[in-house]
Simulated scan of single mutants.
Amino acid sequence: MRTSRVLSARVPSVRVSSAGRAGRAVRAVGAGLLVLGAVASPAAADSSPSAGPSDDDAAPTSAGTSFRTATEVDQGQRATASASMGDYLYWSFPADAGQRPTVKATVKLPDAHASATWQVDVYDGLRRRQACQYGAQTRTAAQDAASVELSCTLRTVRAWSEPWADDPLPGTYYVRLTTVGLKTADLGLPVSAEVQVDSKDVGGAAAVDGSLAEPLVPGVAVAAGSDSDEDSGTSVAVLSSIEPDDGWASGWWSDRWVWTAVGGVLAALAGVGGYSLTRGVGRPSRVPPSA
Rank of each mutant, 00 (worst) to 15 (best):
L126I: 11
D124P: 14
A114L: 05
A141F: 08
M85F: 08
R139L: 11
V157Y: 04
V148A: 04
E162T: 11
Q75W: 01
V103K: 01
Q196L: 09
T80E: 06
A105T: 12
L154M: 12
T156L: 05
A97W: 07
D87Y: 02
G188D: 14
Q99P: 03
R176Y: 03
T178D: 11
L154T: 12
Q77Y: 01
V197N: 02
T184D: 13
V148D: 05
W160Y: 14
T153A: 04
Y134P: 04
V103W: 05
Q196M: 11
A112R: 15
R128N: 14
T178N: 11
A145W: 09
Y88S: 06
L154W: 06
W118Q: 09
V195Q: 10
F93M: 00
Q130A: 04
L154D: 04
R176P: 01
D96W: 08
A146I: 00
Y123M: 09
L126T: 15
P94F: 09
D111F: 15
G181I: 03
T184Y: 10
D198C: 03
V157C: 03
Y90N: 00
Q77T: 02
P110Y: 00
L89W: 05
A136P: 06
P190E: 03
A112W: 09
D166T: 14
Q143T: 13
D167N: 08
G188E: 09
G135N: 12
R158Q: 12
A159T: 14
R100Y: 00
W91K: 03
S115E: 13
P190W: 07
T156Q: 07
L150Q: 09
D87M: 03
Y123T: 05
V122L: 11
A81F: 04
A112P: 07
D144F: 14
P168C: 05
D167A: 12
V122M: 12
A145I: 07
T172K: 14
E162D: 11
A95C: 04
L182R: 03
P190S: 02
G98R: 01
D198K: 08
A116V: 15
V195D: 02
V197F: 05
Y173W: 12
L109Y: 01
Y90I: 01
D167M: 03
Y174F: 15
T153H: 05
Q130M: 15
A145H: 11
P163H: 11
D167R: 07
W91Q: 03
V120D: 07
Q130N: 10
V175H: 07
S151N: 10
S192F: 02
S151D: 08
T179I: 04
T138N: 09
K183T: 15
S147F: 11
Q133G: 12
P94T: 06
D96V: 02
T172I: 13
V197E: 04
D87L: 06
L177E: 00
S84P: 00
L187Y: 10
T153L: 06
T178E: 09
S147A: 14
T138P: 13
S92Q: 10
Y174L: 10
P170K: 07
Q137D: 13
C132S: 13
S92F: 00
D87A: 03
